[in-house]
Design a binder for these strands. Structure first.
Length: 573
DNA sequence: GCCGTTTTCGGCCCGACTGTTTTCAGTCG
């Protein structure tokens, strides 16, 4: 079951949409969206808070706190039910169609009784929209096209897919004559785990040549819109790309603006307004005279607003602006800080590359240490045996990697349904480190799953809980355990939580990291590489760790080998 | 409906593009 926070966040998002659709006060709708975000991201389970505690959540005042309490007590909120009774769920669904917003959705419902995507498609084909004010032939076309897009459900893609496309676009546009700077911004620059579209920013004196080159890129399938400053296209990768062209002098303000997030932007703009300034993608201006003050770099803009430069991965309005003001902004861990990888596989189990090849690739990455952690026997299909594992250990001990890199012989244990692992203590004692992960029985009840993970933490030889929630982004939800109890057990027992860097997992994710961090847990950012190219996934794990506000000191594989080994002893005699 | 380094009332981020309009509303990010 989801946390009450998530259920209430979804409810308030729906309420905000319903307010917009019914033509309610736009500011009120925004307040509920804001409260939904704040509650969804709040570290404490709201069902444990009283009215006072609720009102300490930013954006939650008396009325919203009362609605939260009403929901917790009765499972519903009367004000939301009332709007639900007036507006069928299908009308809200209509606003998912690109180019169709709340105003037109309401008009379609009130004038024509349309309350589903299918009904809208029929109405367009029957030419019933022709008499509606504001609906011309192009609008009909756009709606039909939007319905196609919605039905083919492009949706969001994993970060690695977006990064690859963005880097291709940036490389191509950087070659165009007159392009002075080119970079991607948006949620990709912020390192979000999934990406809805790509924002590319170009600094150039004129936009003509770069816009033409952009719309003619081989993977562009459709030009959605194109003007002097902004052009949007769809690509054959299922992603749209927006191009913005700005003068070079505006680069910093534009990067800031197009990196977002929306909530971060709103907050710094509010801050600008309070200082009698106006912030746009073109710069920071004096509100009265309209005179430009700064715009060249992000640092300049932040500094004029009294803030240090804030890393893009932190720009989610999760307290980074307040922290920047009082000097409490963390210095985020970087990929360069990593001294090693503590969870990797070889072809002895389900990896694709031989031990020597994985090790050689790891030395190329400049690591000081590197752990081989193939699967243990309880994953039967991996055909692991004691003998095979011991033979691998001999092989590892005999290898002399270049550049002085040290090898650790470890294992990825399977956490069984009762929390036990593959081998008894005396066999485990001879590994340099043990990762332990859940690979099956995902649907046990919450109490069993919680006990199972806590018991694994309490094993004196388990150093790292691998991909702790076992989610697969977009495919499988995480297991339903009491994660706060698991995080507390990790902190108590000296067990690290993994941030699995594989773009399909990114597990723990940013919000869980933020919660775990409050328990004083340590983390390991691991590639879980099953092949040489997977070693490079680390960048996504690092971005996720940054989004969880982790510093170098929080992450055990940034430590020296001496310090790491002390941690791996886990307080054993 | 929230909130306060002008405020307990009156604000609430800003601009580009499209389509249907003769001056602007809606949508998007």
């Amino acid at each position: 079951m989801a946390r009450a926070n998530d259920e209430i966040a979804a409810l308030f998002r729906e309420y905000a949409d319903l307010i917009s659709i019914t033509g309610g006060d736009a500011f009120r709708a925004r307040v509920y969206e804001k409260a939904a975000r704040a509650i969804g991201g709040h570290h404490t389970d709201v069902s444990t808070l009283d009215a006072k505690g609720l009102k300490e959540i930013p954006g939650v005042g008396r009325s919203i706190a009362e609605k939260v309490e009403e929901y917790l007590a009765s499972g519903g909120v009367a004000a939301v039910e009332e709007l639900r009774a007036r507006i069928p769920a299908g009308v809200r669904r209509l606003t998912a169609i690109p180019s169709l917003g709340p105003r037109k959705a309401l008009m379609l419902y009130e004038e024509l009784g349309i309350s589903s995507v299918d009904e809208l498609a029929d109405a367009i084909h029957e030419e019933r929209l022709r008499d509606l004010k504001g609906f011309g032939p192009r609008t009909e076309e756009n709606l039909l096209h939007g319905i196609d897009l919605l039905r083919s459900a492009g949706g969001r893609v994993h970060i690695d897919v977006a990064a690859e496309l963005a880097e291709e676009v940036v490389a191509a546009l950087s070659e165009v004559g007159g392009v002075q700077r080119c970079a991607y911004a948006g949620s990709l620059r912020r390192g979000r785990e999934t990406i809805g579209d790509i924002d590319v920013l170009v600094a150039a004196r004129t936009s003509g040549p770069v816009t033409k080159a952009f719309t003619e890129l081989p993977y562009v399938t459709e030009v959605i819109g194109s003007g002097e400053k902004k052009t949007s296209v769809r690509t054959d990768r299922g992603l749209s790309v927006d191009l913005r062209v700005v003068p070079k002098d505006s680069w910093g303000a534009a990067m800031l603006y197009f990196t977002g997030s929306k909530a971060h932007n709103i907050k710094i703009r509010e801050r600008a307004v309070h200082q009698k300034l106006k912030l746009s993608e073109y710069g920071l201006f004096d509100a009265e005279s309209g005179k430009k003050i700064v715009s060249r770099t992000e640092e300049d803009v932040y500094a004029r607003l009294g803030l240090p430069w804030i890393a893009p991965t932190l720009r989610e309005d999760r307290g980074e602006i307040e922290a920047g003001l009082d000097g409490g902004l963390p210095e985020p861990v970087t990929e360069a800080d990593l001294r090693g990888d503590l969870h990797t596989h070889t072809d002895l189990t389900d990896g694709l590359a031989a031990l020597e090849d994985m090790v050689a690739a790891a030395t190329e990455r400049g690591y000081a240490y590197y752990a081989i952690t193939d699967h243990a026997p309880d994953l039967y299909m991996q055909r692991m045996t004691d003998e095979r594992m011991l033979a691998q250990r001999e092989q590892v001990r005999a290898l002399k990697p270049s550049r002085g890199m040290r090898l650790l012989h470890g294992v990825e244990l399977n956490i069984g349904p009762d929390g036990g692992v593959d081998w008894p203590d005396d066999f485990l004692a001879d590994f340099d480190l043990c990762v332990a992960s859940v690979h099956s029985h995902f649907t046990q009840d919450r109490e069993t799953l919680t006990r199972r993970l806590v018991r694994a933490c309490e094993n004196p030889y388990v150093n790292i809980i691998g991909h702790p929630t076992t989610r697969l982004i977009g495919k499988r939800p995480g297991i339903d355990a009491d994660l706060d109890e698991v995080f507390a057990a990790c902190a108590r027992t000296g067990t690290a939580l993994e941030i699995n860097a594989h773009p399909d997992r990114l597990d723990l994710g940013d919000e869980h990291i933020l919660r775990a961090r409050r328990h004083g847990v340590r983390f390991a950012i691991d590639s879980d590489a099953h092949a040489v190219p997977h070693l490079a996934h680390m960048r996504y794990g690092v971005a996720t760790a940054q989004r969880g506000w982790l510093t170098k000191d929080d992450v055990i594989n940034t430590w020296t080998l001496t310090r790491l080994k002390r941690f791996l002893r886990k307080g054993r005699a």
